[in-house]
């Protein structure tokens, strides 16, 4: 039973939007990055000026912005959870008929919703400014992004469990997530890495996120990415199981 889930989710969304910096950072910065970078590479002519630019604009940039969107959602969640814990807010909410998982689910839902809204804005902006480049299966991609966000949110919960104070939650999450991107295939294809690093990349959930998102964006079938989905499901299950054991409410 999830008594209060929707009320709490709606409330958390409103509360989040009342903090101007957080709201702007989450909703508008990714769209702005997408537009600014896209425009810089595609000034006026409609054809990219750098070699490989077209491909980057059509696939690399949207995927990259999406991955950053997912990571920023996770970091924001970790930060909120630790602030709530430090202030005794989690404890206060838990001493109501709200079930513990309802409280956490409300935050996850709120983050997924923000991710969906930002993605929609990004795609609308893309349609408006680069009509040629975007033929991507938008609905499938949105779904893939939400699944990816969910998978890395589970890592967020482990971080939120281990890091006790709100002050360290943000830097620790950044240290966990951003270096992972270097090996994820986002900047350099995994196949182009040295053999040892390829092996490390295969152990990182972000690699599967990038593979799934780029594949779906370029129109590949879900079937071709069953491996990515399975890997993300396994990572998700492991991290959820860990955080269920170590999560602290106060």
């Amino acid at each position: 039973m999830m008594r209060g889930l929707f009320q709490l989710t709606w409330l958390e969304i409103k509360i989040f939007l009342r903090e101007p910096l957080g709201a702007i950072g989450t909703l508008f910065v990714p769209v702005a990055v997408f537009l600014v970078v896209g425009r810089a590479m595609n000034r006026g002519t409609g054809t990219p000026r750098t070699p490989g630019g077209l491909e980057f604009m059509q696939t690399g940039l949207p995927v990259m912005v999406s991955v950053f969107m997912a990571i920023s959602a996770v970091i924001s969640l970790v930060t909120i959870i630790s602030i709530y814990r430090e202030g005794g807010i989690l404890k206060r909410l838990r001493a109501t008929p709200l079930r513990p998982y309802t409280i956490l689910s409300a935050h996850v839902l709120a983050k997924l919703l923000f991710t969906a809204v930002t993605l929609t804005m990004m795609i609308l902006a893309g349609r408006r400014f680069y009509p040629a480049g975007l033929q991507a299966p938008v609905i499938s991609f949105a779904f893939a992004l939400l699944l990816s966000t969910l998978a890395i949110l589970s890592i967020g919960f482990v971080i939120a469990s281990v890091v006790r104070t709100a002050r360290f939650a943000q830097p620790v999450s950044a240290i966990v997530f951003y270096p992972m991107l270097g090996l994820s295939g986002l900047f350099v294809p995994v196949e182009a890495l040295p053999a040892g690093l390829q092996w490390v990349a295969k152990l990182l959930p972000m690699t599967y996120v990038v593979s799934l998102l780029s594949g779906i964006w370029t129109g590949e079938s879900w079937f071709a990415h069953l491996g990515d989905l399975a890997a993300l499901a396994v990572f998700g299950a492991i991290f959820v199981a860990i955080s269920a054991r170590v999560f602290r409410w106060e």
Partner: peptide
């Protein structure tokens, strides 16, 4: 929980 009311020491609500 339906039959008791609780005020916790040093608890807070969401700032906003």
């Amino acid at each position: 929980q339906d039959r008791i009311g609780v005020q916790l020491q040093q608890a807070h609500l969401q700032k906003r």
